[in-house]
Design a protein around this nucleic acid. Structure first.
Lengths: 151, 151
DNA sequence: GCGATACAATTGCGATTGCAACTCAAGGCA
DNA sequence: TGCCTTGAGTTGCAATCGCAATTGTATCGC
């Protein structure tokens, strides 16, 4: 996949794809929606009163705004979230999770968590889990900074 | 993003998204094609005589076959690869990289490698790079096994 | 107060992806 | 040989994504 040293990087992208693919496969096999829905539902549910502003949510789950708009459209159509505009700031849009949304997220979480706990986490001991996750967070931060610097 | 312990997993997916996004941004800023093309070009180029069979390539770069068909369509249209069928096995299709394909891959690689070397790799020391990449490979293997077992 | 600028969210449209079905060739095996 | 199953690759169509506007609102400087 590369012609030099960064094996770690290629292990990173390859394992990511394979694992996501397997999670998607198990979710689909259980008749549940795609992985992206979980992220969005959790992003909403974890906000104050199960509510979040759109751009805050987009940032949290690392998804482009225009895609979030339409993802939330779909969630709303399924009755998993509701939308509201803010009286204070006319630009702001808020998303709130519904009971159905919470229930679905929980069902997805069972499969999602099992898969991660079975295939991914056991490959790291407790100490490594901490240090690797910190290293990845630093990388994410560096990347965010870099893209902001470039405007 | 989750409601329990697997912080490592969420750091993993978050950092992956942010990093890929930044790589895409830099490639686009340099007027180069998307990240996916790099993968495909490298997958072809790294084969014997710069040639690979379709399904072998799909497997190597972790992409679905039907998507590979169309990705190769686009690469072929741009003159970056050529296609050929096998005389021995009438089912097999071979892809071969062209000089233009090699040149483009090299140009992309400069940006790609710089980004990874700048934002990602420095977060891990040499020992960690080895052990983490092994852990990720084990996870990928486990996931592949799991999906095969399920047929 | 008013125009220029910045922000938040959305939308039109073309490109890409995912699923399921399909074509054609190989490999059993009765 | 003839039939059935499997394998490799592709395609039709619907869903989703990405880019470049667009709309509407807030804020800043004068």
């Amino acid at each position: 996949m590369a012609n030099k040293e960064p094996d770690l990087w290629f292990s990173f992208v390859r394992s990511h794809r394979v694992l996501i693919r397997e999670i998607e496969r198990r979710l689909a096999a259980a008749g549940l929606p795609a992985y992206a829905w979980y992220d969005a539902l959790w992003g909403v549910e974890s906000g104050e009163d199960g509510t979040r502003r759109m751009h805050e949510l987009a940032d949290a789950i690392v998804i482009e705004r225009y895609n979030l708009t339409r993802l939330v459209d779909r969630l709303e159509q399924e009755g998993l979230v509701t939308r509201a505009r803010s009286p204070e700031d006319g630009r702001a849009a808020y998303v709130t999770i519904t009971d159905a949304g919470r229930a679905l997220r929980k069902r997805m979480w069972k499969i999602y968590e099992t898969t991660v706990a079975e295939l991914f986490l056991p490959q790291f001991d407790a100490k490594a889990q901490r240090s690797v996750s910190q290293a990845l967070d630093r990388a994410a931060l560096a990347a965010r900074r870099s893209s902001q610097d470039a405007q």
